[in-house]
Amino acid sequence: MKKFRVVHYINQFYAGIGGEEFADYKPEIRDGFVGPGMALTGAFGDKAEIVSTIVCGDSYFNENLEEAKKTILDMVRSVNPDIFIAGPAFNAGRYGVACGTICETVQKELNIPVITGMFEENPGAEMFKDKMLIVATRDSAAGMRAAVPTMANLALKLLNKEPIGASIEEGYLPNGTRVNFFDKERGSRRAVDMLLNKMAGKPFTTEYPMPDFDRVEPSPAVKDIKSVTVALVTSGGIVPKGNPDRIESSSASKFGEYDITGVNDLTADTYETAHGGYDPVYANADADRVLPVDVMRDFEREGIIGKLYNKFYTTVGNGTSTKNSKAFAADFAQRLKNDNVQAVILTST
């Protein structure tokens, strides 16, 4: 029997090239499997094989979107695969967005099935879950062992044009498509069971999750920027040198509040980044590249803004849960409000 031909897309980290310092790595195609492709190959058995692996740095992909898409599409086309698999990306944001973007492009341009995998809070999941099958993974590479067989199984179903079951059975992120089926228990029974579990404080699963439309109306514009206090906030992890509060390099559990009274410029001797999700060389050399205190001070002196708020808020937006980020910001937003700050510039890496 003919083996299906698979092309696998991974980032520089999973290819063993290196971490953030190699995130600018340009796309390249290699024969056979690389890194996590080995486990996928094992799961495919004699049914499919990875003919080529495409490796691309996460920053390169996201910063050179059109060029990266075109180059990678040409590479995929050149080996004529039956299916395209990307990741899994777990909770790596740029990797997840890259996987989703390139899957969407391949699906559209080459008309072959695609599949990827990521954690539900990965921004790529929200962007692409209704456009392709995204296997639900844990938030870190520790979930590789569980993710691989699910991805391989779904890939083979797609290749064999077998029907795909409900997301909860097959292990992909719900994509909004409804599948009719007969359950073992009738509805009234399931509803009462659910209610009893809920009353007893036991876990239960709703059959109709409410859609999550978390949108906030834009605040009115600042009337006269020359007369207001503007604050700086960042998810780029800028902290005083030495990271006094020990903000974690990923999955941050806290934010920092630091006084910048009298600080006109962030230097390599005084500030650095605690962020573990991008190459820290540039921010460590000059943290103004992420938290622009120098120019904001110029604006203040020149009367372009009223005042720069004398504190900044910072955390590390690297695999940090939405729940934590929301709690951090709800806390410091109230402090900003109490101090009559009227505008915020929030920078992200």
């Binding site: 921004p123 910001a329 937003a333 009227q342 505008a343 929030l346 992200s348």
Partner: peptide
């Protein structure tokens, strides 16, 4: 974080490289 700041009524601008992520998260400016 942008949404929580906006929620208390302070206008906020998100300066970031991967703007599609910012759109997905729900930044307004």
């Amino acid at each position: 974080m942008v949404k929580e700041i906006e929620r208390v009524g302070i206008p906020v601008v998100h300066v970031c490289t991967v703007t599609p992520i910012s759109m997905t998260v729900g930044a307004n400016r």
